[in-house]
Design a binder for these strands. Structure first.
Lengths: 140, 140
DNA sequence: TATTGTTATACTCTATAACTATA
DNA sequence: TATAGTTATAGAGTATAACAATA
């Protein structure tokens, strides 16, 4: 077994362990992971186009339409035509969506924070750098 | 923004970047990520129960039945009753599945390997340890 | 011609709970 | 009573391609 395989396996395990506890909490707040992703991405912004939202969340455009439809039905987001480009929309959080964002995002951070409580700042910085370094291999 | 949030973001980005290139290749080999996960887990083993397979792949039992059904239909896996416990099955790769495993697993490694080519062994070990350390926070 | 977003297709995965058979 | 696995339910995400409107 080559070394890189072990690294991949630990990357996957680490992510899955995080995802499992994170997603459980997200679903307990009556959102799907994809919906939470969209809401977290739109929070504290002026909104953005579907294209930009898709790039940030890695949700492909066909899928995105469906996810946004469900969020719009629930009154969480709005779509607004923009004057500059009539092919495109600005997708943004409704007032109800803003409240939901503040609420769920804060609660989610509170839920996650304790898992990191005994990691010193320096360690967190090192981890961050490690992850960024590996990612660059996949993207450059 | 707290430090741990940045660490999470980079973990997620790193994983997603890997997943994206990995899944693209898996789908190009006519498998879904879940199916590849099952095949890779069963490869080089004598097979295992659904329970064990579910624990290793993190696929819940209800979902697992469906995934296994599709693999069985394609003649890739078999289910065999075992004498010790008549509630349970041994799930294992068929001869055709073995060939598929050797083939796809090898090709997949070849596809992934180059992305790690300029990382020295020592660096890989450090990365592995970092992922394992963070995972332990989520699971202990 | 290229791009933005929607629609259509066909599947696959997801969580959850109820259920059957066995332990 | 507990466990292994299936079935049922209801939804949600996935890739892909074709499409309309606009640039």
């Amino acid at each position: 077994m080559e070394n890189f395989q072990v690294t991949i396996r630990e990357l996957v395990r680490c992510y899955q362990a995080f995802e499992q506890l994170s997603n459980r909490h997200i679903r307990a707040m009556d959102l799907t992971p994809a919906q939470f992703d969209i809401i977290a991405t739109l929070g504290n912004t002026q909104g953005m186009s579907c294209r930009e939202l898709g790039e940030k969340t890695l949700i492909t455009k066909g899928t995105l339409t469906g996810v946004l439809d469900r969020l719009e039905t629930r009154g969480i987001i709005n779509r607004e035509t923009i004057s500059e480009d009539r092919r495109s929309f600005r997708v943004y959080l409704s007032p109800k969506g803003e409240v939901l964002f503040e609420n769920t995002f804060t609660r989610h951070l509170e839920y996650i924070r304790p898992f990191f409580s005994d990691l010193p700042e320096q360690k967190l910085v090192e981890m961050t750098n490690t992850f960024a370094e590996l990612r660059s291999k996949f993207q450059d």
